[in-house]
Design a protein around this nucleic acid. Structure first.
Length: 620
RNA sequence: GGACCCGUGGUGUAGCGGCCCAACAUGCCAGCCUGUCACGCUGGAGAUCGCCGGUUCGAAUCCGGUCGGGUCCGCCA
């Protein structure tokens, strides 16, 4: 360790113990709290390491006492004196340093402070978030925020350790790159040297890391800043951080195995007190995930899975169930699915109305419910329509028990899954079904390669456009017509599955990866299906396409959202809580007051002027 | 682009047509206090209720707009 001793302090505010008793010490920190007893003043001195009580006795140190009596909250103070053990009845068990105190002989004010706009010394006090963001440097002085940034530091540190221990090389890639059309809107940066041209900020280092594979780097990782100009959410900021990694000469199993082992080790190093629910991580195909949980990022801490009750209703083929909505849905080839809300049979009319309203908001035409009062005693508005055996069949298939509420959606498969998936998430939270400490990782893989973009009449990559196809599905990468220029929703390509894998944690999507296409012919074929002409491909991905002519090794990797990962590990509802300086939903930095109108001189230099924006968008 | 919620002394809340030129807690200021640790006691200052407009005899309270913040939809491979 370097020698970091300074004139300002001999110890931190979290360091002194009874073993230091009798020795001289000097502390510097912020005044956390002052307790003035007239001739005796107590100062709690705080730094990021802890809190130490400083005692100033007017008889012992009149000068120090005079200084202490004019000191206020958040003043930066240096206190020198002797470490003294406290009498047994004066020990403060809530402080790590509570068995000792510093008897000050000398106190000096290093900096005064205005009264802060909110409490820094009361960790539980609620504060309006905009205020916290404006004074983020004060917010970070508060213990909860500091604790979360320290957790994030442990996370990133553990990530670096594990990667280096496994032969990965951390390489930085540029932030001024070229715009590519896939995915989100780019942030662009005008070029001064080439007026009229722009750089784009990377949405992720995707192409660059693949080029590093072509370069032979073999195992790369980076804690990379990424930028996407889309609307914000609790789990989305315009700039965010990814753990980006890529490996050569690997298959799907190798990448997933490494990421899984890495995630476990990193989790244990970061939050050793939180149990990981299941290892190896459960693996669900995309189809299973959506059928059973109604989402591709399931929270597998609790069951309450979606159940297909079609078969209990005659499946549209046999005897009709008696309830016309169900029978017509099944006859149309659509689905009737259900979830069981445990203990909610006694839900009030108001509660069931709210659930129905939520279902409608999420796109369902309605929501049927059955309250299981006891064995054979089922109540609800649709009971009178249902044949007895259909009703019995529903209870059997859903395994609903006395006291449970069965919620049923009859709709297209995607609607039924999505609606019930959302209800499951909401009810799981409301009913407290998940153990709050538990960390439930799970893999979702075998995504469809493409989804049909009805608006543009073409196939769109479901995830990364460079993702490879599952080998046995390679023949499916064609259109029905045989010409990639005339795609249709019935093309075999729609059935092709990607070597794509997402990592979910407690219902958050924290990462997505794949084995990439490393053959130029397949890459071209895949892009052609997505409606890219050869010229457009060259313009957009020229470097990649050319590089792949020079021997691209088989490779694959993943990107994990560090902010989301940290938020879940820190048990926080938004990623803002684990970012030092986040932006508001409208993309403002309330502390720096960004974005701000441009300086016209800067604009002129770049050959730019604003058009069609309000007056306030220009600065004098 | 859309839906919904929030905006009252420094902070967090209460008040939701007249009882409010606004209450409570805490913070702040002053005085007192030698063992506190959310110290205590006494006293004091501090908000025209985000902003603009309207309804009304009367608006913190109702309505419209606007600004700011949040949740969600769209968007985000």
């Amino acid at each position: 360790m370097a020698d970091l001793s300074t004139p300002y302090r001999t110890h931190t505010c979290g360091e002194l113990r009874p073993t230091h008793a009798g020795s001289a010490a000097r502390l510097s920190g912020w005044v956390h709290r002052r307790r003035d007893h007239g001739h005796l003043i107590f100062l709690d001195l705080r730094d990021r390491h802890g809190l130490t009580q400083v005692v100033v006795d007017e008889e012992e140190a009149p000068d120090a006492h005079a200084v202490a009596s004019r000191v206020r909250s958040e003043y930066v103070v240096m206190a020198s004196g002797t470490v003294a053990p406290r009498d047994a009845d004066k020990v403060n068990p809530r402080l790590a340093t509570g068995e000792v105190e510093l008897r000050a002989t000398d106190i000096s004010v290093l900096a005064e402070s205005k009264t802060p706009p909110f409490y820094i010394n009361e960790p539980d006090a609620p504060i309006d978030e905009p205020l916290r963001l404006k004074y983020r440097y004060l917010d970070i002085r508060r213990e909860p925020m500091l604790r979360r940034l320290l957790l994030r530091d442990r996370l990133v540190q553990a990530i670096r350790d594990v990667h280096h221990a496994n032969g990965f090389v951390e390489i930085e890639t540029p932030d001024l790159i070229k715009s590519t059309p896939e995915g989100a809107r780019d942030f662009i940066v005008p070029s001064r040297l080439q007026p009229g041209s722009v750089y784009a900020l990377p949405q992720s280092p995707q192409q660059l890391k693949q080029l590093l594979m072509v370069a032979g780097v073999d195992r790369y990782f980076q804690i990379a800043r990424c930028f996407r100009d889309e609307d914000l959410r609790g789990d989305r900021q315009p700039e965010f951080t990814q753990l980006d990694l890529e490996m050569s000469f690997v298959d799907e199993a190798t990448v997933m195995a490494f990421v899984e082992a890495m995630a476990i080790e990193v989790t244990r190093a970061t939050v050793p007190e939180r149990p990981i629910r299941e290892t190896p991580f459960p693996r669900l195909t995309f189809g299973e995930a959506t059928e059973r949980y109604g989402t591709d990022k399931p929270d597998v801490r609790f069951g309450m899975e979606l159940v297909d009750i079609g078969p209990a209703l005659g499946g549209g083929a046999g005897e009709p169930s008696g309830f016309r909505v169900f029978d017509e849905t099944l006859a149309a080839g659509e689905r009737v699915k259900a979830i069981v809300a445990p203990g909610m049979a006694s839900a009030s009319r108001r509660e069931t109305d709210e659930l129905t309203e939520a279902a409608r908001r999420h796109g369902a035409k309605g929501l049927a419910h059955l309250a299981v009062e006891g064995p054979g005693d089922v109540r609800g508005p649709i009971v009178k329509f249902l044949r007895a055996d259909a009703l019995r069949g529903i209870i059997e298939r859903t395994r609903a028990e006395a006291g449970d509420l069965v919620l049923i959606v009859a709709d297209r498969t995607d609607v039924a899954n999505e609606v019930l998936g959302r209800l499951r998430t909401e009810l799981g939270a409301r009913l407290g079904l998940a153990k709050p400490d538990e960390l439930a990782y799970c893999w979702v893989h075998r995504f469809p390669m493409y989804q049909w973009d009805a608006e543009n009449g073409r196939w769109d990559a479901t995830h990364n456009p460079f993702s490879g196809v599952v080998p046995e599905d390679e023949p499916l990468l064609v259109t029905a017509s045989g010409d990639p220029a005339t795609p249709s929703p019935a093309d075999p390509a729609g059935r092709a599955r990607a070597m794509q894998f997402d990592l979910a944690l407690n219902g958050w999507e924290i990462g997505g990866g794949s084995i990439r296409i490393n053959r130029v012919d397949l890459l071209r074929q895949s892009f052609a299906l997505q409606g890219y002409s050869l010229d457009r491909m060259r313009n957009l991905f020229g470097a990649m396409l050319e590089a792949f002519e020079y021997g691209a090794p088989p490779h694959g990797g993943i990107a994990l959202g560090i902010d989301r990962w940290a938020a879940v590990l820190a048990d926080q509802p938004t990623i803002r809580e684990v970012m030092a300086f986040p932006k508001t939903q409208s993309g403002s930095d309330l502390m720096l007051d960004a974005p701000a109108p441009p300086d016209p001189a800067q604009f002129a230099e770049l050959g730019l002027r604003t058009v069609g924006v309000p007056d306030r968008a220009t600065r004098d």
